[in-house]
Amino acid sequence: MPAQANDPVAMMRRRSRLAAIMDSDLVYSFLHSRITIAAAIVTLAIVLAAVLAPWIATQDPYDLRVLDILNSHNPPAWLKGGDPQFLLGTDDQGRDVFSTILYGSRQSIAIGVMATLFAGMLGISLGLIAGYAGGSVDAVIMRAADIQSTFPAILIAMLIDGTSRALFGEQRNEQVVFWVMVLSIGLSFWVQYARTVRGSTLVEKNKDYVLAARLIGIRPVKILFRHVLPNVVGPVLVIATINLALAIITEATLSFLGLGLPSTQPSLGTLIQIGQKYLFAGEWWIAIFPGVTLAALVLAVNLLGDWLRDALNPKLR
């Protein structure tokens, strides 16, 4: 290692690679947009806080043994009657709102990311197949997409959620619900990926490099994923970022409607739903803090998606 580190050629090569990245359009446009930097910081802060929740949080709100109902409905620490132990106050079950936001964001982000990944994988695969195969395969896949896009995403998510309730019944515990949410949100967002990827694939598949690859006998699957996919991935990244924000919002909506995670393991939407019951009673902190967190996260991710779209689109420059 030390020998290598001192090797001037390797050092130069490394520096030049870093320089190349720093010199790229993407980084340039990022560093020259203050809003994007702010959005990135907010996103990073919330994601980090969520990931590190077990170390940052002052209480594990999912551990029923540490909850004491006599601590419930406490206002934030700086208000009269507040307890310094509970920075942002407590909810109706004595959960520390600050800790619950951290754990709740963890659930919301995890479900959002998994759902986006799932929708992306499904949509990209179907889009590639439809675009490359053409003919009746294309027609079937794209008509299915057309039909699904006439249903609002939240409705599809609710349908799948309801079906899972009937299927699992008693066995519907937290783990099951988590994956049901991923599935139901993911399934409602795959259409956009499929359409975009199909369009790009149609353009790419007649280009010379693809024809050459076919000529030397490479299998279609390999052509699709090794040759076509890298060339259509730009727009997919943009959709994925914007979909992540949508997925988080959908998760919050489902939880708000009581269809999401069990109320003993609140996500941001569940917390807002609990909080809105106490708004008239003047206990605003249960709904407002998780609401602000959700709004900030979704707005920041959306801004990042917007920036990515502009940065990756040469026609907009």
Partner: peptide, 23 residues
């Protein structure tokens, strides 16, 4: 009703009965 159940889930958790709440 749901809040009573939730509070009780916490109390039962303290004695080791892990309750999955279906409201």
């Amino acid at each position: 009703d749901e809040a009573i159940c939730q509070a009780s889930v916490g109390m039962l958790g303290q004695i080791g009965i892990k309750v999955n709440l279906l409201s």
